[in-house]
Design a protein around this nucleic acid. Structure first.
Lengths: 211, 211
DNA sequence: CGCCCTATCGCTCGTTCGGGTGATTGCATG
DNA sequence: CATGCAATCACCCGAACGAGCGATAGGGCG
Protein backbone atom coordinates (compact mmCIF):
# COMPACT_ATOMS: atom_id res chain seq x y z
CA UNK A 1 0.00 0.00 0.00
CA UNK A 2 1.18 3.42 -0.93
CA UNK A 3 0.17 4.98 2.35
CA UNK A 4 0.04 3.31 5.70
CA UNK A 5 -3.51 4.40 6.44
CA UNK A 6 -4.80 4.01 2.92
CA UNK A 7 -8.41 2.96 2.30
CA UNK A 8 -8.85 0.24 -0.30
CA UNK A 9 -12.01 0.86 -2.33
CA UNK A 10 -13.93 -1.33 -4.77
CA UNK A 11 -16.13 0.44 -7.35
CA UNK A 12 -19.30 -1.27 -8.58
CA UNK A 13 -21.38 0.39 -11.29
CA UNK A 14 -22.57 -0.71 -14.70
CA UNK A 15 -21.93 2.73 -16.19
CA UNK A 16 -18.30 3.05 -17.15
CA UNK A 17 -18.67 6.82 -17.15
CA UNK A 18 -19.68 6.78 -13.52
CA UNK A 19 -16.82 4.46 -12.61
CA UNK A 20 -14.38 6.75 -14.35
CA UNK A 21 -15.88 9.73 -12.57
CA UNK A 22 -15.63 8.09 -9.17
CA UNK A 23 -12.09 6.98 -9.89
CA UNK A 24 -11.17 10.49 -10.98
CA UNK A 25 -12.76 12.03 -7.90
CA UNK A 26 -11.30 9.57 -5.44
CA UNK A 27 -7.82 9.41 -6.87
CA UNK A 28 -7.39 13.00 -5.77
CA UNK A 29 -7.31 11.78 -2.19
CA UNK A 30 -4.01 10.24 -1.26
CA UNK A 31 -5.53 8.01 1.39
CA UNK A 32 -7.89 6.32 -1.03
CA UNK A 33 -6.84 3.55 -3.38
CA UNK A 34 -9.12 2.00 -5.98
CA UNK A 35 -8.33 -1.70 -5.84
CA UNK A 36 -10.90 -2.87 -8.34
CA UNK A 37 -13.98 -2.19 -10.42
CA UNK A 38 -17.00 -4.32 -11.22
CA UNK A 39 -19.87 -3.91 -13.66
CA UNK A 40 -22.48 -5.98 -11.88
CA UNK A 41 -23.29 -7.80 -8.69
CA UNK A 42 -21.64 -11.05 -9.67
CA UNK A 43 -18.38 -9.36 -10.57
CA UNK A 44 -18.58 -7.39 -7.36
CA UNK A 45 -18.72 -10.56 -5.26
CA UNK A 46 -15.82 -11.99 -7.23
CA UNK A 47 -13.68 -8.88 -6.87
CA UNK A 48 -14.51 -8.62 -3.21
CA UNK A 49 -13.16 -12.09 -2.58
CA UNK A 50 -9.90 -11.46 -4.37
CA UNK A 51 -9.25 -7.86 -3.35
CA UNK A 52 -10.67 -7.65 0.18
CA UNK A 53 -11.47 -3.94 -0.09
CA UNK A 54 -12.08 -1.83 3.00
CA UNK A 55 -15.04 -0.12 1.43
CA UNK A 56 -17.34 -1.01 -1.46
CA UNK A 57 -18.98 1.78 -3.44
CA UNK A 58 -21.97 0.18 -5.14
CA UNK A 59 -24.70 1.43 -7.48
CA UNK A 60 -28.22 0.44 -6.51
CA UNK A 61 -29.55 -0.24 -9.98
CA UNK A 62 -27.62 -2.63 -12.14
CA UNK A 63 -28.56 -5.17 -14.77
CA UNK A 64 -28.58 -8.78 -13.67
CA UNK A 65 -28.05 -8.99 -9.97
CA UNK A 66 -29.06 -5.59 -8.63
CA UNK A 67 -27.11 -3.65 -6.06
CA UNK A 68 -29.39 -4.63 -3.22
CA UNK A 69 -29.12 -8.32 -3.97
CA UNK A 70 -25.38 -8.03 -4.26
CA UNK A 71 -25.32 -6.20 -0.96
CA UNK A 72 -27.31 -8.93 0.74
CA UNK A 73 -25.21 -11.67 -0.83
CA UNK A 74 -22.06 -9.91 0.27
CA UNK A 75 -23.23 -9.37 3.83
CA UNK A 76 -24.39 -12.96 4.06
CA UNK A 77 -20.86 -14.17 3.45
CA UNK A 78 -18.92 -11.29 4.95
CA UNK A 79 -20.95 -9.39 7.54
CA UNK A 80 -18.04 -7.07 8.22
CA UNK A 81 -18.05 -5.75 4.66
CA UNK A 82 -18.53 -1.99 4.57
CA UNK A 83 -20.75 -1.02 1.68
CA UNK A 84 -21.69 2.49 0.60
CA UNK A 85 -24.68 2.46 -1.75
CA UNK A 86 -24.81 4.99 -4.56
CA UNK A 87 -27.88 6.03 -6.48
CA UNK A 88 -29.33 8.41 -8.99
CA UNK A 89 -32.94 7.87 -8.07
CA UNK A 90 -33.39 9.90 -4.94
CA UNK A 91 -37.02 9.20 -4.13
CA UNK A 92 -37.13 5.56 -3.23
CA UNK A 93 -37.67 3.17 -0.43
CA UNK A 94 -34.70 1.27 -1.75
CA UNK A 95 -33.04 3.34 0.92
CA UNK A 96 -34.90 1.56 3.65
CA UNK A 97 -34.17 -1.82 2.15
CA UNK A 98 -30.53 -0.92 1.73
CA UNK A 99 -30.27 -0.01 5.37
CA UNK A 100 -32.05 -3.19 6.37
CA UNK A 101 -29.73 -5.17 4.14
CA UNK A 102 -26.80 -3.73 6.01
CA UNK A 103 -25.52 -0.84 3.92
CA UNK A 104 -23.16 1.41 5.83
CA UNK A 105 -24.36 4.43 3.94
CA UNK A 106 -26.46 5.73 1.13
CA UNK A 107 -25.40 8.49 -1.23
CA UNK A 108 -26.74 10.18 -4.31
CA UNK A 109 -24.48 10.57 -7.28
CA UNK A 110 -24.91 14.29 -7.08
CA UNK A 111 -22.68 14.39 -4.01
CA UNK A 112 -19.75 16.72 -3.95
CA UNK A 113 -16.26 15.28 -3.99
CA UNK A 114 -15.85 16.42 -0.46
CA UNK A 115 -18.90 14.66 0.86
CA UNK A 116 -18.02 11.48 -0.96
CA UNK A 117 -14.58 11.36 0.60
CA UNK A 118 -16.00 12.14 4.01
CA UNK A 119 -18.54 9.37 3.62
CA UNK A 120 -15.88 6.84 2.67
CA UNK A 121 -13.73 7.81 5.63
CA UNK A 122 -16.71 7.67 7.94
CA UNK A 123 -17.72 4.25 6.71
CA UNK A 124 -14.16 2.99 6.85
CA UNK A 125 -13.98 4.14 10.44
CA UNK A 126 -16.94 1.89 11.19
CA UNK A 127 -19.61 4.54 11.14
CA UNK A 128 -22.72 5.04 9.08
CA UNK A 129 -23.11 7.84 6.64
CA UNK A 130 -26.48 9.18 5.61
CA UNK A 131 -27.09 12.56 4.00
CA UNK A 132 -29.49 14.79 5.83
CA UNK A 133 -31.93 14.90 2.94
CA UNK A 134 -32.23 11.12 3.02
CA UNK A 135 -32.78 10.84 6.75
CA UNK A 136 -35.70 13.17 6.26
CA UNK A 137 -37.06 10.95 3.53
CA UNK A 138 -36.64 7.94 5.76
CA UNK A 139 -38.78 9.53 8.42
CA UNK A 140 -41.47 10.19 5.85
CA UNK A 141 -41.33 6.58 4.76
CA UNK A 142 -41.58 5.38 8.33
CA UNK A 143 -44.61 7.59 8.86
CA UNK A 144 -46.56 6.20 5.98
CA UNK A 145 -49.03 3.44 6.79
CA UNK A 146 -47.85 0.36 5.12
CA UNK A 147 -50.12 -2.07 3.38
CA UNK A 148 -50.42 -5.66 4.44
CA UNK A 149 -49.34 -8.42 2.08
CA UNK A 150 -52.93 -9.14 1.16
CA UNK A 151 -53.68 -5.51 0.51
CA UNK A 152 -50.75 -5.26 -1.85
CA UNK A 153 -52.02 -8.30 -3.73
CA UNK A 154 -55.37 -6.58 -4.05
CA UNK A 155 -53.69 -3.37 -5.16
CA UNK A 156 -51.85 -5.34 -7.80
CA UNK A 157 -55.16 -6.69 -9.01
CA UNK A 158 -56.41 -3.12 -9.39
CA UNK A 159 -53.29 -2.23 -11.31
CA UNK A 160 -54.05 -5.00 -13.76
CA UNK A 161 -57.55 -3.64 -14.33
CA UNK A 162 -59.36 -6.45 -12.53
CA UNK A 163 -62.81 -5.90 -11.04
CA UNK A 164 -63.43 -6.73 -7.42
CA UNK A 165 -65.03 -9.96 -8.51
CA UNK A 166 -62.05 -10.96 -10.61
CA UNK A 167 -59.65 -10.14 -7.82
CA UNK A 168 -61.78 -12.33 -5.60
CA UNK A 169 -61.55 -15.17 -8.08
CA UNK A 170 -57.82 -14.71 -8.46
CA UNK A 171 -57.24 -14.77 -4.72
CA UNK A 172 -59.93 -17.37 -3.99
CA UNK A 173 -61.79 -15.20 -1.54
CA UNK A 174 -65.22 -13.59 -1.62
CA UNK A 175 -65.91 -10.34 -3.39
CA UNK A 176 -66.99 -8.85 -0.07
CA UNK A 177 -63.58 -9.45 1.35
CA UNK A 178 -61.95 -7.88 -1.65
CA UNK A 179 -64.09 -4.81 -1.15
CA UNK A 180 -62.97 -4.66 2.44
CA UNK A 181 -59.34 -4.79 1.35
CA UNK A 182 -59.92 -2.21 -1.34
CA UNK A 183 -61.45 0.07 1.24
CA UNK A 184 -58.45 -0.37 3.49
CA UNK A 185 -56.08 0.35 0.62
CA UNK A 186 -57.95 3.49 -0.32
CA UNK A 187 -57.85 4.70 3.27
CA UNK A 188 -54.20 3.95 3.82
CA UNK A 189 -53.15 5.53 0.56
CA UNK A 190 -55.55 8.45 1.10
CA UNK A 191 -57.03 7.87 -2.32
CA UNK A 192 -60.45 8.74 -3.64
CA UNK A 193 -60.66 5.75 -5.96
CA UNK A 194 -58.63 2.81 -7.25
CA UNK A 195 -57.06 4.87 -9.99
CA UNK A 196 -55.49 7.22 -7.47
CA UNK A 197 -54.55 4.28 -5.28
CA UNK A 198 -52.64 2.74 -8.17
CA UNK A 199 -50.91 6.07 -8.78
CA UNK A 200 -49.92 6.27 -5.10
CA UNK A 201 -48.74 2.70 -5.34
CA UNK A 202 -46.31 3.67 -8.06
CA UNK A 203 -45.29 6.88 -6.34
CA UNK A 204 -44.53 5.06 -3.12
CA UNK A 205 -42.73 2.17 -4.73
CA UNK A 206 -45.37 -0.39 -3.78
CA UNK A 207 -45.87 -1.07 -7.47
CA UNK A 208 -43.01 -1.20 -9.95
CA UNK A 209 -42.81 -0.36 -13.60
CA UNK A 210 -40.66 -3.35 -14.48
CA UNK A 211 -42.94 -6.33 -14.48
CA UNK B 1 -7.11 25.50 -29.90
CA UNK B 2 -4.59 22.85 -29.09
CA UNK B 3 -5.26 20.88 -32.23
CA UNK B 4 -6.37 22.22 -35.55
CA UNK B 5 -9.33 19.86 -35.79
CA UNK B 6 -10.22 19.89 -32.11
CA UNK B 7 -13.83 19.52 -31.04
CA UNK B 8 -14.95 21.94 -28.35
CA UNK B 9 -17.36 20.21 -25.95
CA UNK B 10 -19.67 21.56 -23.24
CA UNK B 11 -20.69 19.16 -20.46
CA UNK B 12 -24.09 19.56 -18.80
CA UNK B 13 -25.04 17.31 -15.89
CA UNK B 14 -26.13 17.97 -12.34
CA UNK B 15 -24.05 15.08 -11.02
CA UNK B 16 -20.48 16.19 -10.52
CA UNK B 17 -19.38 12.57 -10.55
CA UNK B 18 -20.75 12.12 -14.02
CA UNK B 19 -19.15 15.32 -15.23
CA UNK B 20 -15.81 14.18 -13.87
CA UNK B 21 -16.28 10.83 -15.51
CA UNK B 22 -17.07 12.34 -18.86
CA UNK B 23 -14.17 14.72 -18.57
CA UNK B 24 -11.86 11.85 -17.69
CA UNK B 25 -13.12 9.74 -20.57
CA UNK B 26 -13.01 12.51 -23.14
CA UNK B 27 -9.71 14.04 -22.16
CA UNK B 28 -8.08 10.84 -23.38
CA UNK B 29 -8.91 11.90 -26.91
CA UNK B 30 -6.60 14.55 -28.21
CA UNK B 31 -9.16 15.97 -30.59
CA UNK B 32 -11.67 16.71 -27.88
CA UNK B 33 -11.49 19.73 -25.60
CA UNK B 34 -13.85 20.36 -22.71
CA UNK B 35 -14.54 24.07 -22.85
CA UNK B 36 -17.04 24.24 -20.03
CA UNK B 37 -19.35 22.49 -17.61
CA UNK B 38 -22.84 23.33 -16.39
CA UNK B 39 -25.03 21.93 -13.64
CA UNK B 40 -28.43 22.79 -15.04
CA UNK B 41 -30.24 24.08 -18.06
CA UNK B 42 -29.85 27.73 -17.23
CA UNK B 43 -26.13 27.44 -16.76
CA UNK B 44 -25.93 25.45 -19.97
CA UNK B 45 -27.52 28.27 -21.96
CA UNK B 46 -25.19 30.74 -20.32
CA UNK B 47 -22.08 28.69 -21.02
CA UNK B 48 -23.18 28.03 -24.55
CA UNK B 49 -23.34 31.74 -25.27
CA UNK B 50 -19.90 32.44 -23.92
CA UNK B 51 -18.06 29.34 -25.08
CA UNK B 52 -19.71 28.51 -28.40
CA UNK B 53 -18.96 24.80 -28.12
CA UNK B 54 -19.09 22.54 -31.17
CA UNK B 55 -20.96 19.86 -29.30
CA UNK B 56 -23.05 19.89 -26.12
CA UNK B 57 -23.27 16.72 -24.01
CA UNK B 58 -26.40 17.12 -21.92
CA UNK B 59 -28.12 15.01 -19.29
CA UNK B 60 -31.84 14.54 -19.79
CA UNK B 61 -32.85 14.76 -16.16
CA UNK B 62 -31.80 17.76 -14.20
CA UNK B 63 -33.31 19.83 -11.44
CA UNK B 64 -34.85 23.13 -12.45
CA UNK B 65 -34.89 23.42 -16.19
CA UNK B 66 -34.66 19.85 -17.45
CA UNK B 67 -32.44 18.73 -20.28
CA UNK B 68 -35.26 18.68 -22.80
CA UNK B 69 -36.34 22.20 -22.01
CA UNK B 70 -32.76 23.38 -22.19
CA UNK B 71 -32.41 21.62 -25.51
CA UNK B 72 -35.47 23.33 -26.89
CA UNK B 73 -34.42 26.70 -25.55
CA UNK B 74 -31.00 26.26 -27.06
CA UNK B 75 -32.28 25.21 -30.45
CA UNK B 76 -34.73 28.07 -30.46
CA UNK B 77 -31.90 30.56 -30.27
CA UNK B 78 -29.20 28.61 -32.06
CA UNK B 79 -30.68 26.01 -34.40
CA UNK B 80 -27.21 24.96 -35.52
CA UNK B 81 -26.26 23.82 -32.00
CA UNK B 82 -25.23 20.16 -31.94
CA UNK B 83 -26.57 18.51 -28.81
CA UNK B 84 -25.97 14.94 -27.69
CA UNK B 85 -28.41 13.87 -25.01
CA UNK B 86 -27.24 11.56 -22.25
CA UNK B 87 -29.40 9.50 -19.99
CA UNK B 88 -29.48 6.79 -17.37
CA UNK B 89 -33.13 5.87 -17.80
CA UNK B 90 -33.19 3.63 -20.81
CA UNK B 91 -36.90 2.95 -21.04
CA UNK B 92 -38.35 6.28 -22.00
CA UNK B 93 -40.09 8.18 -24.67
CA UNK B 94 -37.95 11.16 -23.74
CA UNK B 95 -35.98 9.83 -26.65
CA UNK B 96 -38.71 10.68 -29.06
CA UNK B 97 -39.16 14.10 -27.56
CA UNK B 98 -35.44 14.70 -27.64
CA UNK B 99 -35.31 13.88 -31.33
CA UNK B 100 -38.29 16.08 -32.01
CA UNK B 101 -36.65 18.88 -30.07
CA UNK B 102 -33.65 18.62 -32.31
CA UNK B 103 -31.13 16.48 -30.47
CA UNK B 104 -28.35 15.25 -32.70
CA UNK B 105 -28.05 12.05 -30.74
CA UNK B 106 -29.12 10.12 -27.71
CA UNK B 107 -26.82 8.03 -25.57
CA UNK B 108 -27.03 6.03 -22.39
CA UNK B 109 -24.45 6.61 -19.74
CA UNK B 110 -23.44 3.00 -19.96
CA UNK B 111 -21.75 3.66 -23.29
CA UNK B 112 -18.18 2.64 -23.77
CA UNK B 113 -15.53 5.31 -24.11
CA UNK B 114 -15.16 4.32 -27.70
CA UNK B 115 -18.78 4.75 -28.59
CA UNK B 116 -18.97 8.06 -26.81
CA UNK B 117 -16.06 9.46 -28.78
CA UNK B 118 -17.48 8.11 -32.01
CA UNK B 119 -20.81 9.71 -31.24
CA UNK B 120 -19.22 13.07 -30.57
CA UNK B 121 -17.25 12.92 -33.80
CA UNK B 122 -20.31 11.84 -35.71
CA UNK B 123 -22.40 14.66 -34.30
CA UNK B 124 -19.65 17.18 -34.84
CA UNK B 125 -19.47 16.10 -38.46
CA UNK B 126 -23.12 17.05 -38.78
CA UNK B 127 -24.55 13.56 -38.46
CA UNK B 128 -26.95 11.97 -36.05
CA UNK B 129 -25.95 9.29 -33.63
CA UNK B 130 -28.39 6.80 -32.24
CA UNK B 131 -27.45 3.47 -30.65
CA UNK B 132 -29.03 0.48 -32.23
CA UNK B 133 -30.87 -0.49 -29.08
CA UNK B 134 -32.58 2.89 -29.01
CA UNK B 135 -33.65 2.86 -32.63
CA UNK B 136 -35.40 -0.39 -31.86
CA UNK B 137 -37.12 1.23 -28.91
CA UNK B 138 -38.13 4.15 -31.09
CA UNK B 139 -39.90 1.83 -33.47
CA UNK B 140 -41.75 0.29 -30.58
CA UNK B 141 -42.75 3.72 -29.37
CA UNK B 142 -43.89 4.74 -32.83
CA UNK B 143 -46.08 1.64 -32.95
CA UNK B 144 -47.88 2.39 -29.77
CA UNK B 145 -50.85 4.73 -30.04
CA UNK B 146 -49.89 7.90 -28.34
CA UNK B 147 -52.25 9.99 -26.31
CA UNK B 148 -53.13 13.52 -27.29
CA UNK B 149 -52.29 16.40 -25.01
CA UNK B 150 -55.86 16.59 -23.80
CA UNK B 151 -56.01 12.89 -23.14
CA UNK B 152 -52.89 13.07 -21.02
CA UNK B 153 -54.43 15.89 -19.01
CA UNK B 154 -57.47 13.69 -18.45
CA UNK B 155 -55.25 10.76 -17.52
CA UNK B 156 -53.51 13.00 -15.03
CA UNK B 157 -56.90 13.82 -13.55
CA UNK B 158 -57.57 10.13 -13.09
CA UNK B 159 -54.20 9.72 -11.45
CA UNK B 160 -55.19 12.33 -8.91
CA UNK B 161 -58.38 10.47 -8.11
CA UNK B 162 -60.73 12.97 -9.73
CA UNK B 163 -64.15 11.90 -10.97
CA UNK B 164 -65.17 12.65 -14.53
CA UNK B 165 -67.14 15.60 -13.28
CA UNK B 166 -64.20 17.01 -11.37
CA UNK B 167 -61.90 16.56 -14.32
CA UNK B 168 -64.49 18.43 -16.37
CA UNK B 169 -64.50 21.27 -13.87
CA UNK B 170 -60.73 21.36 -13.76
CA UNK B 171 -60.42 21.53 -17.53
CA UNK B 172 -63.51 23.71 -18.03
CA UNK B 173 -65.20 21.30 -20.38
CA UNK B 174 -68.35 19.21 -20.10
CA UNK B 175 -68.46 15.88 -18.34
CA UNK B 176 -69.52 14.30 -21.60
CA UNK B 177 -66.31 15.36 -23.23
CA UNK B 178 -64.30 14.02 -20.36
CA UNK B 179 -66.01 10.68 -20.75
CA UNK B 180 -65.11 10.70 -24.42
CA UNK B 181 -61.48 11.35 -23.54
CA UNK B 182 -61.49 8.71 -20.84
CA UNK B 183 -62.88 6.23 -23.32
CA UNK B 184 -60.15 7.08 -25.81
CA UNK B 185 -57.50 6.72 -23.12
CA UNK B 186 -58.82 3.33 -22.06
CA UNK B 187 -58.82 2.15 -25.66
CA UNK B 188 -55.37 3.44 -26.50
CA UNK B 189 -53.86 2.03 -23.34
CA UNK B 190 -55.82 -1.20 -23.71
CA UNK B 191 -57.09 -0.86 -20.18
CA UNK B 192 -60.21 -2.25 -18.59
CA UNK B 193 -60.67 0.70 -16.25
CA UNK B 194 -59.04 3.91 -15.10
CA UNK B 195 -56.94 2.12 -12.51
CA UNK B 196 -55.24 0.03 -15.17
CA UNK B 197 -54.95 3.07 -17.40
CA UNK B 198 -53.06 4.89 -14.67
CA UNK B 199 -50.81 1.87 -14.24
CA UNK B 200 -50.10 1.80 -17.98
CA UNK B 201 -49.46 5.51 -17.84
CA UNK B 202 -46.70 4.94 -15.31
CA UNK B 203 -45.34 1.91 -17.14
CA UNK B 204 -45.14 3.80 -20.42
CA UNK B 205 -43.69 6.94 -18.93
CA UNK B 206 -46.76 9.07 -19.62
CA UNK B 207 -47.05 9.68 -15.90
CA UNK B 208 -44.09 10.31 -13.67
CA UNK B 209 -43.42 9.48 -10.07
CA UNK B 210 -41.73 12.79 -9.30
CA UNK B 211 -44.39 15.43 -9.08
C1' DC C 1 -55.89 -12.41 29.79
C1' DG C 2 -57.21 -8.38 27.24
C1' DC C 3 -55.74 -5.43 23.10
C1' DC C 4 -54.74 -4.54 18.36
C1' DC C 5 -54.30 -5.90 13.79
C1' DT C 6 -55.33 -8.84 9.90
C1' DA C 7 -58.22 -11.60 7.11
C1' DT C 8 -62.45 -13.17 6.30
C1' DC C 9 -67.60 -12.68 5.31
C1' DG C 10 -72.28 -10.08 5.16
C1' DC C 11 -75.87 -6.35 3.71
C1' DT C 12 -77.72 -1.85 1.61
C1' DC C 13 -77.60 2.07 -1.23
C1' DG C 14 -76.51 6.03 -3.94
C1' DT C 15 -72.96 7.39 -7.21
C1' DT C 16 -69.95 6.65 -10.74
C1' DC C 17 -68.13 4.28 -14.47
C1' DG C 18 -67.73 2.63 -19.03
C1' DG C 19 -69.96 0.73 -23.44
C1' DG C 20 -72.76 1.73 -27.31
C1' DT C 21 -73.82 5.19 -30.85
C1' DG C 22 -74.31 9.36 -32.29
C1' DA C 23 -72.99 14.56 -33.93
C1' DT C 24 -70.15 19.08 -35.08
C1' DT C 25 -66.15 21.97 -35.53
C1' DG C 26 -61.49 22.99 -36.87
C1' DC C 27 -56.97 21.94 -38.30
C1' DA C 28 -53.52 19.58 -40.82
C1' DT C 29 -51.88 16.41 -44.13
C1' DG C 30 -52.03 14.59 -48.43
C1' DC D 1 -60.68 19.15 -51.90
C1' DA D 2 -60.95 14.95 -49.28
C1' DT D 3 -59.60 12.39 -45.58
C1' DG D 4 -58.24 11.84 -41.00
C1' DC D 5 -57.75 13.20 -36.40
C1' DA D 6 -58.51 16.00 -32.20
C1' DA D 7 -61.73 18.20 -29.35
C1' DT D 8 -66.11 19.25 -28.18
C1' DC D 9 -71.04 17.92 -26.85
C1' DA D 10 -75.20 14.58 -26.38
C1' DC D 11 -78.23 10.39 -24.57
C1' DC D 12 -79.13 5.63 -22.58
C1' DC D 13 -78.16 2.00 -19.42
C1' DG D 14 -76.35 -1.95 -16.93
C1' DA D 15 -72.56 -3.02 -14.18
C1' DA D 16 -69.22 -1.77 -10.98
C1' DC D 17 -67.74 0.99 -7.37
C1' DG D 18 -67.22 2.89 -2.77
C1' DA D 19 -69.44 4.41 1.77
C1' DG D 20 -71.58 3.02 5.75
C1' DC D 21 -73.09 -0.08 8.84
C1' DG D 22 -71.89 -4.57 10.59
C1' DA D 23 -69.58 -9.59 12.48
C1' DT D 24 -66.21 -13.58 13.50
C1' DA D 25 -61.78 -15.86 13.95
C1' DG D 26 -56.84 -16.00 14.50
C1' DG D 27 -52.16 -14.23 15.70
C1' DG D 28 -48.83 -11.30 18.21
C1' DC D 29 -47.81 -8.58 22.29
C1' DG D 30 -47.64 -6.40 26.74
Amino acid sequence: MAHPGSIRVLLVDDHSVVRMGLAAVLSLDEHIVIVGEAEDGAQALEKFRTEKPDVVLMDVRMPGMGGLEALRALRAVTPEARVLMLTTSELDEDIQRAIEAGAAGYLQKSVTRDELVRAIRCVHAGGRYMPEALTRRLEQLAKRRHLSHREIEVLDGMRRGLSNRDIALALSISEHTVKAHVKAVLQKLESADRAEAVARGFEQGLLRVDE
